[in-house]
Design a protein around this nucleic acid. Structure first.
Length: 261
DNA sequence: ATGCCGGGTACGACCCGA
């Protein structure tokens, strides 16, 4: 089972590129972030024609996540829930699907974790609070003892190897102690970074549009596939396909791919 | 460079991302 994650930075702008890549790579499950459209505006037909079932947690203009699957959904949910009283309406950043393959139940959660910059604004505490809620959410999922895959744009640089200039970046909301401590908690409760289970290479998933970042390979690895113990047991490969960053009208992120079973 | 590019909304100019 091939599962992929891709921050597309606007599904309407990226439709030809994404359709072309999916046709060539034929993933079973696709997790998209930053679709930047309302659920009803998602281009369902184009993906249905490729054989996908589709669930969308959309929002006008910003954020928005979608799950596409060749396997029928047996269950879906949106958001982290537990919004505190007085808190702003939740941003569309999470969608989860449950699938049955043969006799195995697999749970897949697609996230677009808040960026959190600038750190001296209310966006940073929002990121940390979102991560606390995600940790509780993941803890509960792990008690189910199913293969559980948590993937998407984490906006977290896990280690110095995952950023082109660690010294320059240290202190950014993506790469500072408070953010990494929460990411480590996600690992400590039992999730593993699939790419790092199979590879110690320097490989990025994002290159800024500005400053010739792609040309200079000034990248970040901030898109991740985390897997529960039962999902790790089934992992057969994990990689990042950086090729689409060089294509016409690219996203600033590229697809990351995990294969299980 | 507290956004240099690029998408969204909406059609000029701002909001947002990492």
């Amino acid at each position: 089972m091939k599962i992929i994650s891709w921050n597309v930075n606007g599904i309407k702008a990226r439709l030809p590129l994404v359709l072309d890549w999916i046709k060539k790579n034929n993933p079973d499950i696709v997790a998209l972030q930053e679709i930047k459209c309302l659920s009803e505006s998602f281009p369902y037909m184009e993906f249905e024609d490729l054989g996908y079932n589709i669930k969308v947690n959309g929002q006008k203009s910003f954020n928005g996540v979608a799950l596409l699957s060749k396997i029928p959904f047996s269950e879906t949910s949106k958001g982290l829930g537990l919004i505190k009283e007085g808190e702003k309406e939740e941003q569309a950043r999470l969608i989860e699907g449950v699938f049955s393959i043969d006799k195995t139940v697999i749970r897949v959660c697609n996230i677009y974790l808040p960026n959190g910059n600038p750190v001296n604004s209310d966006k940073f505490p929002y990121k940390l609070a979102w991560m606390d809620r995600l940790i509780d959410f993941a803890k509960e999922r792990l008690t189910y003892e199913e293969p559980f895959i948590l993937l998407g744009d984490f906006n977290i640089i896990p280690a110095p190897i995952d950023v082109y200039d660690p010294k320059e970046w240290w202190g950014d909301a993506l790469y500072r102690e408070e953010s990494l401590a929460k990411f480590r908690t996600l690992l400590n409760i039992g999730l593993r970074d699939c790419l790092r289970l199979v590879s110690d290479e320097v490989i990025y998933s994002f290159w800024d549009f500005q400053k010739g970042a792609w040309k200079k390979n000034n990248g970040l690895r901030i898109d991740h596939i985390l897997a529960s113990p039962l999902a790790c047991d089934a992992l057969t490969s994990a990689r990042i396909d950086k090729a689409p960053r060089s294509y016409e009208r690219p996203s600033d992120h590229v697809p990351i791919i995990g294969e299980f079973f």
